[in-house]
Amino acid sequence: MIFVKAAAAAVLLASAVHADMTSYPEPLADALAMTYEAPEEAHWRYVMQVTMNDASMQVRFDGSQPDGEQWQLVAPASEDGLADILVDVWQDLNQPDAEDENAGDGISINATEGLFFSSDTADVVAGDVVSTGTNRFTFRPDLGSDEEDDAMRSFMTGELSLAPAGHVDQIRVFAPESFKPHVAARVHAFEMVIRFDRIEGLPAPIMTSLSTEIDISAMFQRQQQAVRFEFSDVEYVEP
């Protein structure tokens, strides 16, 4: 389904083409260059709050643990207390070997790449940058390169703001109006918002929250989904 794929793409933030930033205003170009690619041997620890519609869960990630043991359910206390809409999310987190096989079929977090503002995230800003005020810009967004992304791309617009410290504070990608990416589907509303912040001692800004809201009609059914990820108690260890 398009609405599930869009939310997954938002979390993974994988862009196939690197944008040319030489023509961007200097504050924006500098902010988009504040990236860091963590080495494979580095690991993260953080708490993640996941909210889907009216259901939520809190989990803890520890990248120093073996695959399959990196995620711990904090609240509710056991899987039996999870709302049905979150059961698949929790199971996916604990099945790393199935991640590639099931890509696009649900919500997933690429924990190995961590939370740093990365070049892939910067490439969401694909061009047509316009300054709309002090440290505020609009842009043409790019969320990916497959068929479904191509169908939605032309209907999207982007907004970006910079923090006083100079890093990217927020990226917002949204559809200004309802559109039909395919003959059998209509997207009534789409919005993705990503927030970033700096933590003392870390080499780049980190993602602190990501939310996606989408309202779609397809196959004679209307479906609405709101997904939010919030990250706290973040620790990063690099050898």
Rank of each mutant, 00 (worst) to 15 (best):
V125C: 03
A126V: 03
A126L: 08
V129I: 07
S131C: 05
S131G: 07
G133S: 09
T134W: 05
T134A: 13
R136G: 01
F137H: 01
F137E: 01
T138K: 12
F139C: 02
R140I: 02
R140L: 13
P141D: 06
D142A: 13
D142E: 06
D142C: 12
L143I: 09
L143P: 05
G144W: 05
S145I: 01
S145C: 15
S145W: 09
D146P: 09
D146V: 02
D146N: 15
E147W: 12
E148S: 13
E148I: 09
E148M: 11
E148N: 12
D149Q: 10
D149H: 15
A151L: 06
A151R: 10
A151C: 06
A151D: 13
A151N: 12
A151Y: 06
M152H: 15
R153M: 10
S154G: 15
S154C: 08
F155Y: 12
F155E: 04
F155R: 00
M156A: 13
M156R: 03
T157C: 07
G158S: 02
E159N: 07
E159C: 01
L160D: 03
S161D: 13
S161E: 09
S161G: 04
L162S: 06
L162F: 12
A163Q: 02
A163P: 00
P164D: 06
P164N: 04
P164F: 14
P164A: 11
P164L: 08
A165F: 05
A165R: 08
A165L: 07
G166Y: 14
H167D: 03
H167R: 04
H167E: 07
H167P: 02
V168C: 04
D169R: 10
I171K: 01
I171T: 00
R172F: 04
R172C: 06
V173C: 09
V173I: 15
A175G: 13
A175T: 07
A175Y: 08
A175F: 12
P176Q: 12
P176A: 11
F179N: 01
F179W: 10
K180G: 03
K180E: 13
K180M: 04
K180R: 14
K180C: 02
H182L: 07
V183D: 09
V183Q: 09
